[in-house]
């Protein structure tokens, strides 16, 4: 069997007494899209941040292409980060830079691509998310939420990463724009042949962009399987979540995870 792109085992992370991740085991194959669902505060973001090295897990192993990344030194970490692209929930665009400079940021600052060339890459990536070159000259603050998401997507794919993370890509968008973003994600990921992990609580989005779904609840992955089987999971938690019922085994967290 081929080495999985991402292999996580026994991952734990606590904040004080609260166990946010309590022994996560999951693998993502090359070219596969995993969607992690779960309520607000169930630790989905923490999972992504641990894989990206933005947070240090308490214990466990995270292998990227077979290479252990927990405890990597800063310089080594930068090399591994080159494989990643990330679409942040709020876009996290740099508001002091113009749109094209945002998209070209990775190529220019990290890969030392000459500015002219990087601008061409940026405009091409903006084109692939359906934005015209004149948008490139605007500031992020001048764009609507949906447009910002598109720019953020263009920035995430600008360095043609092998692994892309999507943090609630459709949150805060209207249903039509959500579907546009979902389509763009599917299309971009297919083009790059990238492996992805998306976290969302939008089931329409999860069904569209995922190959496989995993449900995170109280720090554990309580169910994982192909998208087609989510309706026949036989798990009361999963059923409650995907049908959005207030009544059921899941109680909502008050405090942030």
């Amino acid at each position: 069997m081929a080495v999985p792109r991402i292999a996580i085992s026994g991952l734990r992370k606590s904040f004080g007494p609260k166990k946010v991740l309590d022994g996560i085991d999951v693998e993502v194959a090359i070219g596969e899209s995993l969607v992690v669902i779960g309520g607000s505060g169930s630790g989905k973001s923490v999972l992504l941040k641990c894989i990206l090295g933005l947070m240090q897990p308490d214990s466990g192993s995270i292998r990227i292409d077979g290479e252990e990344t927990v405890g990597l030194r800063r310089a080594e970490r930068a090399r591994v980060m080159r494989k990643f692209g990330m679409l942040f929930q709020g876009g996290a665009l740099f508001d002091s830079l113009r749109v094209w400079e945002n998209v070209a940021f990775g190529p220019i600052q990290s890969d030392r691509v000459p500015v002219d060339e990087a601008k061409q890459i940026a405009l091409q990536k903006l084109g692939s998310v359906g934005l015209t070159p004149d948008v490139g000259e605007l500031r992020p603050a001048e764009l609507s939420g949906g447009m910002q998401k598109r720019v953020a997507l263009a920035r995430a794919i600008a360095r043609e990463p092998e692994i892309i993370f999507f943090d609630e890509p459709t949150t805060g968008l209207d249903p039509i724009m959500s579907d546009v973003i979902n389509d763009l994600i599917v299309q971009c990921v297919k083009q790059l042949g990238a492996s992805t992990i998306s976290i969302t609580h939008d089931m329409a989005s999860a069904r569209k962009i995922g190959d496989r779904i995993a449900m995170l609840h109280e720090g554990k992955l309580i169910w994982q399987g192909p998208v087609a089987e989510i309706d026949r999971s036989g798990d009361a938690h999963v059923d409650q979540f995907i049908h959005g019922r207030a009544e059921g085994p899941i109680r909502m967290q008050v405090r942030k995870g």
Binding site: L52, L54, R74, F84, M86, F88, A92, F94, G106, S110
Partner: peptide, 9 residues
């Protein structure tokens, strides 16, 4: 965080 994911310290 976005800076870090773009390999910029």
């Amino acid at each position: 965080d976005a800076l870090t994911t773009l390999s910029t310290e």
